[in-house]
Design a protein around this nucleic acid. Structure first.
Lengths: 205, 205
DNA sequence: TAGAATTTTTACCATTTGGTAAAGTCACGA
DNA sequence: TCGTGACTTTACCAAATGGTAAAAATTCTA
């Protein structure tokens, strides 16, 4: 019974768990939770369905595992915002990191978006704890910068919302972006310039 | 056989079709296409499942009907951007209209977001025609304003993307916003001020 | 290498779900 | 008010899907 909490995951266990989670990420991010089937995940992973269920307690357990691991990755760029750095450059660097994530981890972005869009049925606890405390902390930091006259007067919470939405847009609404810019060889580069210009202006005293 | 293309929809037909579409919007926007069942829609509409299928050819037909009608509503605020108005005020007014839509039509916004997130399997034709031509037209308009020196040099396409993403964020990621701002009595008002400030700065020469 | 433990497959099962056939019920014009 | 067409319900069905039991195969260890 290797699922749940095994003490010493064997080599095979480690490999297959990773393979399953990767396949599940691919499938869940493409079709959503309800739109994905264990058969699809099994096919993508190159394993049989009962074999999948040997490693995870069920479809929901796979999804929950993915979301839990995702949360860490998701918060890292915000964690890296340094109170000791230059306010403007710290925030602009955060925008850039977020945009890079949308390009490099589109599946993770869409998985997250789908979960939130559905009302976060499985992620709510994580939001209320991890995300919430980090969000409050960084909002306070930005407010502190504002009070010290190092940033113009702005709304820290909605600034972060705008950073999230504009960057994740390029992953979550990827199809739409591609339909409207079919010939752009490097949409990411132009997006980066645009966002740097926009937030750069906003953060200038 | 009232589905498809009836000539003269009776009073009952009109009422029930409307009731069904409204129920389907509620259900689809909450659980996604695959996550929604005809039984749910039937229950929400107060009708039996076979009765639903008397008015629509099937689950997919309901979804397609909703998406088709939605596209019009969705494009209206952009259509209203007037080439003869003041560039800055026209764009800022568009931002405001979009934000109002996120507040007043959150179900429509989430339905649209879910469809795009899943790769627009049913909406792709509409995107490639209606949306595409309007997008190109308004990008050209903005570029024209820039060339005339009436707007600062910016990227019209990505400006529109940023307007879409920041405004729809308040509908699509509503749960997240509420988790992070549990005490805000009027999040919409603050969002409006924030977006006006942000895009206002961006559009200032 | 023998035996134990782990991993994988085969053969199922119960439920859900989109959809249909056909019988009944209702509304309305002649 | 009567008959015809529009509407609704009842009773189903086939396929898909999450999940299980147990046998078979493989790997690890003493």
């Amino acid at each position: 019974m290797p699922d749940g909490n095994a003490k010493k995951p064997s080599r095979i266990q480690k490999r297959n768990r990773r393979v399953i989670l990767d396949a599940a990420l691919e499938v869940f991010s493409s079709y959503g939770y309800r739109g994905s089937t264990l058969d699809q995940i099994a096919a993508e992973a190159g394993l049989s369905k009962p074999n999948i269920l040997y490693y995870f307690d069920g479809k929901e357990a796979i999804h929950v595992t993915l979301l839990s691991r995702l949360m860490q990755t998701w918060l890292d760029p915000l964690v890296a915002m340094d109170p000791l750095g230059d306010p403007r450059e710290e925030i602009l660097a955060y925008v850039q990191r977020k945009l890079d994530m949308a390009r490099d981890l589109p599946r993770e972005s869409r998985l997250f978006a789908g979960e939130i869009l559905m009302g976060a049925p499985r992620m709510m606890p994580h939001l209320q704890t991890d995300l919430r405390s980090l969000f409050d902390e960084k909002c306070a930091l930005i407010q502190h910068w504002i009070d010290a006259g190092r940033l113009p007067d702005l709304d820290p919470q909605h600034l972060i919302f705008s950073i999230w939405s504009t960057t994740q847009h390029y992953a979550d609404f990827d199809v739409q972006v591609r339909v409207l810019q079919p010939d752009d060889p490097d949409p990411h580069a132009r997006a980066s310039l645009h966002l740097r210009a926009m937030f750069g202006r906003m953060l200038t005293l």
